[in-house]
């Protein structure tokens, strides 16, 4: 696991996110993020599911889309319900 819940991460694109939840499926960690404003004051209603890969000591973020994203989002929501 690279990020923990309530971590704020800043990406090379300039956007900032807060980690709302983490989930491991088949040894891959997925992260449920909410976008936050640049001043880190407001959580926006923009969600994103990502996974990470590392290359040359860099952490790269890869967005998860499509059916896999839907499945993971469902699992995240189930966890939140618990």
């Amino acid at each position: 696991m690279v990020f923990s819940v309530k971590n704020v991460i800043e990406l090379s694109g300039g956007k900032k996110y807060i980690v709302a939840d983490t989930l491991e499926i088949n040894n891959i960690w997925y992260y449920y993020l909410y976008e936050i404003d640049s001043e880190e004051k407001i959580i926006k209603d923009v969600k994103r599911i990502i996974t990470t890969v590392s290359e040359n000591n860099n952490i790269l973020v890869k967005s998860i889309n499509g059916t896999l994203a839907t499945e993971i989002e469902t699992k995240f929501k189930e966890r939140q319900n618990i």
């Binding site: 690279v2 990020f3 309530k6 971590n7 704020v8 991460i9 800043e10 990406l11 090379s12 694109g13 807060i18 709302a20 909410y34 936050i36 880190e40 004051k41 407001i42 959580i43 990470t52 890969v53 860099n58 952490i59 790269l60 973020v61 890869k62 967005s63 889309n65 929501k77 939140q80 319900n81």
Partner: peptide, 30 residues
Amino acid sequence: AEDKLEKVVAIKPANANLAQQLEQIHESYQ
């Protein structure tokens, strides 16, 4: 746009305000 890999520039713990907002979001969802 879809497949862009983004590099993580910084990781840090959220401030109290953000943490509180996140908890509120969880609560409202529940």
